[in-house]
Each structure stands twice: as C-alpha cells, then as structure tokens.
Simulated assay, not measured.
Amino acid sequence: MLRPEVLDYYKRGGEHHRLTAGAGRLEFLRTWDALTRLLPAAPAHVLDVGGATGVYAVPLAAAGYEVQVVDPVPDHVAHAATLPGVTAVLGDARSLPAAADTADAVLLFGPLYHLLSRSDRVTAWREAARVVRPGGVVVGATISRFASLFDGFANDRFGDAAFRPLVEGALSDGMHRPSSPERGWFTSAYFHHPDEPAAEAAEAGLVVRQRLSVESPLWMIGPRLDELLASAERTALLLEMLREIESEPTLLGASSHQLTVAVRAAASA
C-alpha cells in the first residue's frame, strides 16, 4: 500500500515526536483548533484516515467522538487500537474498509501527501465522499509546495549539497524526492500548490467550503515559537489571531500545511 521508503520512514519512528514542539506543536494546536469548529458535535463517527498512532484520535475520543483510525502501517494500527475509545484497522485511503454513508466526518491527515499521483489523490477524496454521510464533512491536510524552500533557510539546511536539488524538484513538479534516508529528511511526498487540493476534492464530487492555512508564516520563527507556546496566555492569543487570518488566500502558500474542508452534498428532497 505504501511505497517502501515511506513505510521504512514510519517504521523508524517517522514523525513520532514531531507534533510535540516548535512548528510541529503549532501544527497540532492549530489543526485541533480547526477541528473543534469544523466537526459535527459529539457523539459523531469520525474516520481518521492515515491517523497513525492516534495523535488526533486520542483527543477526539476524549471529547466524546466515536473514532476509527485507518492506517497502512501495521505498527501504527496496533498502537492506535490500544487507545481508550479508539478502534483501528489496517487500510488504504484509496479503498477504505468502511461501508458507504457510515461516517459523519472523514479526516485525510497524511494520505494526500503520500499519494504521489493526482489520480490516486482524487481516488482518496472520492473514497472519503463514499463513506461519509450526505452533508458530512471531509478535511484534508496537505503540505505546501514551498515548505522545503522555507524550511531550508529557517533551519539552515542548504549547507548540505543534496538539499537544493530536493527543493528544486519540489518547486518544479511538487515531488519531494529525498535521496538519502540517513539524513533524516521527510520521506517521499507530494507538496501541493495551494490551489490543487480544492480542485482534487471537487473532481471527486465534494463541495469545497474552506481552505485554511494551518501554521501561517509563524512556523518559520524558530526558537521564538517555543517561547510563545510555553505561555498559555500567549498561546491563546496566537490561536485567536491566527483564526482571523486562516482563510486569507494570500497566506496559504507560506504556511507549511493547509487544510481543505469539503462536504458531501446532501441528498435531494
């Protein structure tokens, strides 16, 4: 189901701690903040596709949602299945192990950047549309086409001669193709232009409602971000202010991640 290098990346621990500090913590806080406003009220059935070890499934279950993780990595599924209030099954976003019209919401937090062909990504959106109930919401996360370029300067990666070709490739066609896993860079992925996810979702038959920047350009401020997030008061202010600009289209490409929010059209009367 997964390309070998992608599976190896996650078997090595992949992003196990990525969402616990700095830009990763901001990504988690902003994504969770968005989910609290986008999802139907609990109890509702949420299919967390590509949910890995349950980073979002845990707080969703704690909030009263019925959550099922679908993931292609066996170790992820085994771990997620041990979480309170969470079920987990092995599966592929392109052929979900779920019946039609059974989920109130579907999260695609991972599949859309590990499916390198557009047809596969549209299929994943179409599968989400199949399993979600009429009127249900589908939220897809994507990585910005320009993320590796900004990351290269924010984290001083251009000193490695192999990094610039990686960036140039992503800028050219969206394909992030790391040559050496031992460098610790993110694995093979597709980096979307900000306009692409909505077009893919629409082709799958969904109605796009919103495009949200997740971190905004603040993900690039380095250690200063950890200082901000160490204060509950400043974190609350940060989240409040970012809500005000999350739908600003001119900021989408400067955010490391983007959320595309779509719904399945309600059945005609």
Rank of each mutant, 00 (worst) to 15 (best):
G205T: 00
D226K: 09
A41M: 03
A98N: 04
F150E: 04
T87L: 00
R126T: 12
D48V: 01
A199V: 01
G140N: 13
P43A: 13
V214K: 11
E203F: 12
A62S: 02
H76G: 02
L29P: 12
F28Y: 15
F109M: 02
E215G: 03
R209T: 03
F191N: 10
L38T: 04
T102E: 02
F186I: 05
W125I: 04
R211H: 07
G174N: 04
V122F: 07
R264Y: 09
S95V: 10
L90V: 12
F28L: 15
E248G: 08
G140A: 15
V46Y: 03
A100T: 13
S231W: 09
R243M: 06
V73E: 12
A52F: 03
G24K: 08
S148T: 10
G24L: 05
V6D: 14
A204F: 13
A189P: 05
E200I: 07
L206R: 04
A57G: 06
V89L: 01
D156T: 13
L242M: 09
P59G: 00
V6H: 11
A34H: 15
P59I: 00
N155L: 15
P111L: 07
D104C: 00
D156C: 12
H45Q: 11
R30M: 15
G205P: 01
G140C: 10
V122G: 05
A78R: 13
L225R: 08
R94F: 06
L60H: 00
S144D: 08
F150S: 07
D173T: 01
T123V: 09
D8K: 14
G51Y: 01
R25S: 04
R145M: 02
P111K: 07
A162T: 10
R12E: 11
I143T: 05
A103V: 04
R224A: 13
R37V: 08
A267E: 13
L39F: 02
V89M: 00
A269D: 08
P4I: 06
G54H: 01
T31L: 09
E127C: 12
A154E: 13
Y9F: 15
T87E: 04
V89Q: 03
E182G: 10
F186C: 06
V139Q: 06
I221P: 11
R37K: 14
G169T: 05
